[in-house]
Design a binder for these strands. Sequence first.
DNA 1: ACTCCATTTATTGTATACAATAACTGAAAA
DNA 2: TTTTCAGTTATTGTATACAATAAATGGAGT
Lengths: 232, 232
Amino acid sequence: MGMNTRQGNASKGQRSGGGTLYEEVIPWIRDRIIEGELAPGSRIPERVICEKLQISRTPLREAFKVLAAERLLTLTPNRGAVVTRLSFKDVDDAMNLMACLEAFAGKLLCQSITQNEIDNLHELHQRMVVLYNEGNHLEYFKVNQKIHLALLEAADNEVLLQTYLGISTRFKRFRYAGNRAKPRWDRAVNEHEQILISIENRDSDLLQCLLKSHLQNGWAVAREMIREELEG
Amino acid sequence: MGMNTRQGNASKGQRSGGGTLYEEVIPWIRDRIIEGELAPGSRIPERVICEKLQISRTPLREAFKVLAAERLLTLTPNRGAVVTRLSFKDVDDAMNLMACLEAFAGKLLCQSITQNEIDNLHELHQRMVVLYNEGNHLEYFKVNQKIHLALLEAADNEVLLQTYLGISTRFKRFRYAGNRAKPRWDRAVNEHEQILISIENRDSDLLQCLLKSHLQNGWAVAREMIREELEG
DNA sequence: ACTCCATTTATTGTATACAATAACTGAAAA
DNA sequence: TTTTCAGTTATTGTATACAATAAATGGAGT
């Protein structure tokens, strides 16, 4: 990683943007946790990251605090940072809560969504269908994410959005696993189409119902796979 | 605040527990923000807190990162910490979301609540009724909080509980204002009684409905007072 | 008065030094 | 062999020094 030092002994190159080191470190570590490269339960000595990124302990420790607040790390005084280990129940609880939050967003957005946002949703949906036909896992998942995010944004409730994003990133790894099951795809695409229709009709009750079952269906597919990973 | 230094020049007294300085600083600042002693929008220079608490900048800056993650502070690179300013819409959005979360908790707890937890709820309710008759604002509010917390805990969903707590502390000040309106009290006590009954009957639908309207009724009373404070 | 710009001052960001605690090692005792 | 415990090493917690950026100051020119 080409993370320059600000005043360090080696390579006095200027730092890129107006940002700070701890801000750059956060996504670096976060991504490695989400990817599973930093395994759940494993310790992360400060020295290891410091040497790898060529930074001092100060900004790293600040980044640790943020990641601990996101519950991706667990900090214990005098004993350092550990990648938070998630139980199966944690994931199950999170999925249920996210279904609840999406349904609530569905209720709200029926009041607040604009035609622009609906058009944007349609465009995203078309892109997703194309990726579905191409069988492109990763991009399909990304666009799928964007659609759900767009729904949350359309609900026009900033606190809800931030809450959703927090849980979403924390359990990202498992949500991706949910969408890997191929036979689920055609059903998911179909569900999305129904969702779009109910949005256009501003049918709040139906939309809430569809969103809830959409998430629960996806989770049902991944459920046992994840359970095996976390408990078996 | 009797916060001793670990190795500082003055007063070499041992530190109390096995904790760390940044952990002690967090609730100190958090409380001052919630109490309104640190006004929304005001800057908090590191030096001021450092001198007041007799600590160095390192643990303070780590505490700032945690409080920023809780969105009580807003950090801007090279420009320091500002107490996050909340709009009326933020508070309104948060109250709606909390109603949603409590209702969800109500749905879940019908499946998971134990007799012990029900007994505990009754006990808390009795204490609250006593405080209601005594007209004791502060304690009434505290026990009221405890009841709602007990409901969330009974739902047996750790992610939900953590999410609720996060929003709860962030908007604590305004939730307190909601319960200050005296004429609201008798109605609130009555609502709580109905809630307890529906819990005993495991009537999920009724319980969700009651919890939602309970929160919304409380918010309706405080609403205009808060709007005036934040917009007027 | 006002604006502009250089200079100073204050504040934040990072690195490093040192202190405190925990983890490790290995020999002595059971 | 296992346990215990002193001594050592490694790691974390805090303070401080210095660098970089932003804010404040104070003339010179208009």
